[in-house]
Design a protein around this nucleic acid. Structure first.
Lengths: 347, 347
DNA sequence: GTGAAAGCGCTAACAT
DNA sequence: ATGTTAGCGCTTTCAC
């Protein structure tokens, strides 16, 4: 539309070219099997459509069919590769189901997220995948309410704290922390500390929770000064890590909620003469590509699957309607590299 | 649409609730200043719209106005953070201009790209940003032809080889290589080799070209065995790098077309006892986040700006119509870290 | 077998 | 100052 100059080909044009009516064009091109059309007409129409490069106007189709074959994806930013890969997973699944993707970006701003949501709803998307993020997560409830009122199916990704209002898909952070802690314990570590993500997202909280649960399951005590880098003192991961090492009973291993914090703290560790894994074992989280270059043992997530599951759940809501909210946790796996090592000689 | 149960609010509903006609609703909500409406009616309509949560159906608006306020973005994958950040830039610019984004993913497959393009055109997007990628770039021409025939404005990103058919936006790879080579030369290096990206994208070619041009500009000879990792022997960056070091006149510095190759070759270098930057200076390209963790001097691109410029160019095509094809090169900058050092004592 | 006509929800001329 | 009407491009009964 708004094609300066040559106007786009319409069904009418094809009809005229084929010497039939628009109705027939529609019948032929949509392969309506219940009506019987002569082969000759079918061919003539198809030929004319091909020759003119006719593409049925999906806007008009949407209007009359009452469905847009489009879902909305509302995310905080594509700058995060985790989020981008989730979007990739959603797109792939949606394309396979014949649905298009309307992408909107809140730029971590609740007001913007609200405005974007309005646009998506105005476009009459058939459903919305809402990827939570720092900045918007605390007021997410409002937007979910709005979605509910509009009776538009939706799925929340990367936040389960608001999950009671509908479906959500998250990475299994508790499992990840359990794998990390169990791995260290199996290497003989007993004094395992946690370097938090410095965030209030449900992921960060679940990782902290998962750390505590794993330690409890393995009957390992957690000293009060073994947890650092919560939402309020995350500014400097290196400083946080060094604080951990000054604990009354210094840890022999640290599980971090994020590879990045570890990577940033590494030079400080080196400067302090603390060898990894000789003096300290480290497990990261997210398995960013630099984890392999830095030889960091890390928990790998699967954002593409998260996206695919989110779309799958959304699709079943669109076709089957609402029912009991689902909470889907996508499994993670531990990638063992050389930042972790047995702690025999320390106990 | 396809809202099981409660039907969405239409203009008619608002009209009935406010005791006016649909036309009036439209006039009020679109703030038509040329027609005069009583304040009382305006308020009544606005109030009713607010109360009912009315959102004008953009599908219907699109149909009658002949414009969808939507642009299509067709990219090879969101798994690449470079591409994802370009998409982010496009989205931000589009949102600022009041246009939505229909995102489609070719998964590096030309046929899929063609199919997706058909869907975008069927949706009557007002323009298309086509991000080139490995796998689709060689047959890009066909799709550009299709776009031209449909008279839909488009901009190609990350490929200038097909740029003669319309506008394109690329990162300034030649400038990047020039910065890298000049930096090394300023440190006293004369024997500077090139480790290619192992790709046939226009970026990879431009970087190789840029390397040659920069060397020529600085009157530095390029030995025949100083170029490695072209499209045909890129499988193993470490092996390529080691081959470079066995050149008749071994280089004292290497500029790579991609950080990743350097990162992968680093362990091999270490194992061979070759110190960086002591024995060899290295400059990477792309400035991935691991470049900072590995202390790699690197050329930083600006994908968000690339996206923004691409959208800007597209928008001017949409509003102003076609004219001489533009070729926009987005500047890069060199981030100096400690993988490069003066080569005084070697010459 | 095929065409005519109605209508999806909206906007924009034209009436009143 | 507001309502009536036509029509965007398509699909879908219902006539012929």
């Amino acid at each position: 539309m708004r094609n300066q100059g040559q106007r786009l080909v319409r069904g009418t044009d094809v009809a005229r070219a084929a010497g039939v009516s628009v109705a027939t064009v529609s019948l032929v091109l949509n392969d309506r099997r219940n009506v019987v059309l002569s082969e000759r007409t079918r061919d003539r129409v198809r030929e004319a459509a091909r020759r003119l490069g006719y593409l049925p106007n999906r806007v008009a189709q949407s209007l009359i069919q009452g469905r847009t074959r489009t879902v909305g994806v509302l995310l905080p930013s594509l700058a995060s590769s985790f989020v981008a890969r989730i979007a990739d997973g959603i797109e792939t699944a949606a394309a396979a189901a014949g649905l298009g993707l309307l992408l909107a970006n809140s730029r971590h701003d609740p007001e913007s997220e609200d405005r974007q949501l309005g646009i998506l709803l105005g476009q009459r998307v058939e459903g919305v995948v809402l990827v939570a993020g720092e900045g918007t997560v605390s007021t997410l409830g409002k937007r979910l309410e709005r979605l509910q009122q509009s009776a538009t199916p939706f799925v929340v990704v990367d936040d389960e704290t608001h999950g009671h209002r509908g479906d959500c898909v998250v990475s299994d952070d508790r499992q990840g922390m359990d794998l990390a802690v169990a791995h260290l314990a199996s290497l003989g570590h007993r004094r395992i500390a946690h370097l938090g993500a410095g965030s209030i997202t449900s992921s960060a909280l679940a990782r902290l929770d998962g750390y505590r649960a794993a330690m409890a399951r393995l009957r390992l005590r957690v000293d009060r000064d073994w947890i650092e880098g919560d939402a309020f003192r995350s500014a400097d991961p290196a400083a946080s890590l060094m604080r951990l090492l000054r604990a009354r009973r210094p840890p022999t291993a640290v599980v971090a909620a994020n590879d990045r914090h570890l990577a940033e703290a590494l030079p400080t560790l080196r400067a302090a003469g603390i060898g990894v894994p000789g003096d300290l074992s480290l497990v990261g989280y997210a398995n960013y590509d630099f984890a392999s270059y830095l030889d960091l043992t890390s928990v790998e997530q699967d954002p593409e699957v998260i996206g695919a599951k989110a779309f799958g759940q959304l699709l079943s809501r669109i076709t089957d309607g609402p029912s009991k909210p689902a909470r889907i946790r996508v499994p993670v796996r531990l990638i063992v590299r050389s930042s972790t090592q047995a702690a025999f000689f320390r106990s």
